[in-house]
Design a protein around this nucleic acid. Structure first.
Lengths: 120, 120
DNA sequence: CAAACACTTGCACATTTGTTCAAATGTATG
DNA sequence: CATACATTTGAACAAATGTGCAAGTGTTTG
């Protein structure tokens, strides 16, 4: 009887099936994992992280935000758009000025979601 | 007396100096902000986030990790290097196999650091 | 209604990044 | 010591990303 030849590459062969299954369960909800990654990615860029941190205490207009994070209005505005889309920040218009602030509600939801995945 | 001409671009002009100063204080420790961003960035990529989540329950070898996150050994190994360098994961060698696991100690430190910056 | 201003947007560009292939390393085993 | 195997590493490449300029939008003000 010919001995079964093993698959040549590791990708096909699993060492501990049980542990792999357990791990896969952790990341089964692909959409949620991608959402988490998206949030981390947004905070993972210095300019954006500085913007978010700057907004923790008080709302700021784009102009002041640019000064605070030592960048320029255009760059900050571009990054604010990304943060806005992900609802990490919200804004309020007042005449020709726009005041940005943390979108607490949505951020807290995000943190909860991450905790669920992380804890235990 | 000639009236002082205002700077033409917003970058130079600050609307609310007090709020800007307060914001700048939040991000004064540049090095720490960059460290935080680095961690977020690492978790902000789907493959890497999946790897980290997979390791929460148990240590896994590179081979099983690749199977769990549905990627291949080479890609996973590359990403593990980044996670290793940031000390988000640690490893243990056993013969020709390498078992990776979460570097709890270092991750907890990181979480603390982030909390400090975030809370209040 | 023209000028000033705060902000946004489109474009272009350099840089960074994730992935894959192929080759290299290191370890066990016959 | 040759072979098999798990993992790492280097090179190459396409794709994604952050930034800055210049032009555009919308709002206030004289």
């Amino acid at each position: 009887m010919k001995k079964e030849k093993k698959a040549p590459v590791c990708e096909v062969e699993i060492v501990d099936e049980k542990k792999v299954a357990q791990a896969q369960k952790k990341i089964a909800d692909t959409e949620q994992v991608l959402e988490m990654a998206e949030i981390f990615k947004l905070l993972g860029e210095p300019t954006r992280l500085k913007i978010v941190l700057s907004l923790i205490n008080s709302e700021l207009c784009v102009c002041d935000l640019a000064a605070a994070v030592d960048s320029n209005v255009s760059t900050v505005s571009h990054q604010l758009r990304l943060l806005r889309n992900a609802r990490l920040v919200k804004y309020r218009k007042d005449g020709k000025m726009v005041f940005y602030s943390i979108d607490d509600k949505h951020i807290n939801d995000a943190i909860e979601k991450i905790k669920e995945h992380t804890e235990e």
